[in-house]
C-alpha cells in the first residue's frame, strides 16, 4: 500500500519500482557510468561508487554527450539499468530517446513536497504515463 504519493510530469511511459538513489549533481550517462557493473565512476557525481542497477535514480538533471541514449540502452543490454528516472528538469532529447528504447520510465518536475519528504532508500513506484510517484514502504 502506498503511504504517500506525488504528482510529476510523465515523460517516458511504463511502471517500475525500486529503492531511491538520490543525487544532487547532474549525471552524464556517457562517461559517468560503468556499463557492465552499473556503477557510477564519474568523479564529478556525488554518487561515485554507487550502483544504479534496479534503483529509482533521482537527479537534478542530465548532462553531457548526445551519445547518452546509447549508454542508457547499453545498461539495459547488460541488465544494469536503473528501474526509473526522476528528474527536476526535462532531459536532453538523447536521454529521452535512450529511455524509450530501454523501456525505463521517466518522470520530471515532481511537486515540491517530493523533494522535502522523500528519502534515499525509500521504495518508490514510478508511473511514467500518469506521472504518479508512490512511496510503498520505508
Amino acid at each position: 500500500m502506498a503511504e504517500t504519493s506525488w504528482q510529476a510530469r510523465g515523460v517516458v511511459r511504463g511502471v517500475a519500482d525500486g529503492a531511491a538513489l538520490v543525487s544532487q549533481t547532474a549525471l552524464s550517462f556517457l562517461g559517468d557510468l560503468d556499463i557492465r557493473s552499473g556503477r557510477v565512476v564519474g568523479r564529478s557525481s556525488d554518487l561515485c561508487g554507487e550502483c544504479v542497477a534496479g534503483r529509482v535514480l533521482v537527479l537534478p538533471a542530465s548532462r553531457g554527450s548526445a551519445g547518452a541514449w546509447r549508454f542508457l540502452y547499453q545498461l539495459k543490454m547488460h541488465d544494469t539499468h536503473p528501474a526509473a528516472l526522476i528528474l527536476r528538469e526535462m532531459p536532453d532529447p538523447s536521454v529521452t530517446q535512450g529511455a524509450i528504447l530501454a523501456e525505463v520510465p521517466v518522470v520530471v518536475a515532481p511537486e515540491g513536497t517530493f523533494w522535502t519528504n522523500m528519502r534515499g532508500g525509500d521504495i518508490l513506484r514510478v508511473d511514467g504515463s500518469s506521472g504518479r510517484i508512490e512511496r510503498c514502504q520505508r
Binding site: 532529447p93 530517446q97 535512450g98 524509450i100
Partner: peptide, 13 residues
C-alpha cells in the same frame, strides 16, 4: 549554425 537547417541533438531516433 552554418547551413541554416534545423536539427536537435538526437540519438537512435
Amino acid at each position: 549554425s552554418v547551413l541554416g537547417a534545423r536539427s536537435n541533438r538526437d540519438g537512435y531516433f
